[in-house]
Design a protein around this nucleic acid. Structure first.
Lengths: 163, 163
DNA sequence: ACCTGCCGATTGACACGTCAATTCCGTGGA
DNA sequence: TCCACGGAATTGACGTGTCAATCGGCAGGT
C-alpha cells in the first residue's frame, strides 16, 4: 500500500501523517511555552517580552544608550516595529528618545532610571521561569538535542531565504 | 570555580549561560520558522495561520459546520479570540454564522463555498512548506527528538499550570 | 411575577506586528 | 538656485491577540 507511491516521490512533496503530527505538536508546544514565559514576565515584572529584549540591549550598551537603528539591528527587529514599541515604552517612562547630535534625523534611545529598575526587577524571575518551564522539562540529552535542532532549522531557513 | 556554588543550589535557581544560549536559540528559531511558514501561506493562498486552522476544523466537521464554542474547543482558542477572527473571516466571505435553532444564543459557523475553495487551494502549498522548512531541515533522529521534546515540554507545562 | 445567576457569544479597549506611505534632512547634480 | 535622490525614523491603516465588560436568554428559587 505504501508501495503505490514511491518513497522518492511522496517523500519529496508532502509530509507523512507522522511528520505532520510532529510538526503540529512541535509548533503548538513551542508557542505555548513562549507565551507562558511571557505571561510570567508580565505578572512578575509588568513587562512584555518585547520590553525585556529592548531593556536588555540598552542595559548592555555603552552609556545605556543606542541609536535607534543600531538597536533594531542588535535585536533583529524591523525599524517600524521598534518605533512603535519605543513609543509605547516611552509613554510608560521606561526609555527616552533624544535627537542625535552627530547624525541627521538620528535618534538616541536611552534607558531611564525607571527602565533600568524595571529590568533589574525582571531578570531573576524571568531566568527562573526559563529554567522552570524549559530547562527543567528536558533531560540533558534533550536539551542538547534542542540546541542542535534549533541550529539545523536556523541554518536551513537561512539557505531558503535567498532563492 | 563551579564548586563555589553547589550544583543543587545554582541548578535550582537560574539557567547556566549555555542553557540560556540554547533557550534563546530555540525560541527565536521556532518563532522564525512559524513566521516563515505563515508568510508562505499568506503569499501562496492569502490565508493567515489562524484562517487555516479554522478552515481545517470546519472542513473536517460534520456538514462543514460547527457550533462556535465547539470550534473554539477543537482548535484550543479562547472564545473571544475566535469571535474576532470569525468576524474578519466573515467579512471576507470565507465563513458564515447563523443562529443555532437548538441552543439559545448559540451560533453555527459554516464554511462558504469560497472558504472551502480557499482551503483546498491552500493545503498542498502549506504542507509543502512544512516539509521544506521543517521536515527537510532535520535528520530522522532530529525529527524524532523534536517530537519527544515537544511531548516533554507539553507534559511539563501541564503540570505547572495548576499550582 | 420577579430577581438572581449562569451560559454562550460578542464587544471594546488596548498591546503588538507588518506593510506601505510619509517626513525630515542632508548632498550632489543640472 | 533648485530639484531629485537617499538615508533615518515615524506614521497610518489594518490584522491579530488578550482581558475585562457586556448582552440576551433561560433556568431556579422566593
Amino acid at each position: 500500500m505504501t508501495s503505490a507511491t514511491p518513497e522518492r516521490q511522496r517523500g519529496r512533496q508532502l509530509p507523512t501523517a507522522e511528520e505532520l503530527r510532529i510538526w503540529r505538536d512541535f509548533i503548538e508546544t513551542t508557542e505555548a511555552l513562549s507565551s507562558q514565559v511571557g505571561a510570567r514576565l508580565q505578572t512578575d515584572a509588568a513587562l512584555s517580552p518585547g520590553d525585556y529584549v529592548v531593556l536588555l540591549a540598552l542595559t548592555e550598551a555603552q552609556d545605556r544608550q543606542l541609536r535607534s537603528s543600531a538597536l533594531a539591528a542588535h535585536i533583529g527587529w524591523e525599524r517600524s516595529r521598534l518605533s512603535h514599541h519605543l513609543g509605547r515604552m516611552e509613554r510608560r517612562g521606561l526609555i527616552r528618545r533624544q535627537e542625535c547630535p552627530t547624525v541627521p534625523r538620528g535618534a538616541e534611545v536611552l534607558l531611564t532610571p525607571a527602565g533600568a529598575d524595571a529590568f533589574r526587577q525582571a531578570t531573576v524571575p524571568h531566568l527562573r521561569a526559563i529554567r522552570e518551564l524549559f530547562v527543567d522539562a528536558l533531560t540533558a540529552d534533550q536539551l542538547r538535542a534542542a540546541g542542535e535542532i534549533a541550529a539545523a532549522l536556523r541554518a536551513h531557513l537561512a539557505t531558503r531565504r535567498e532563492d
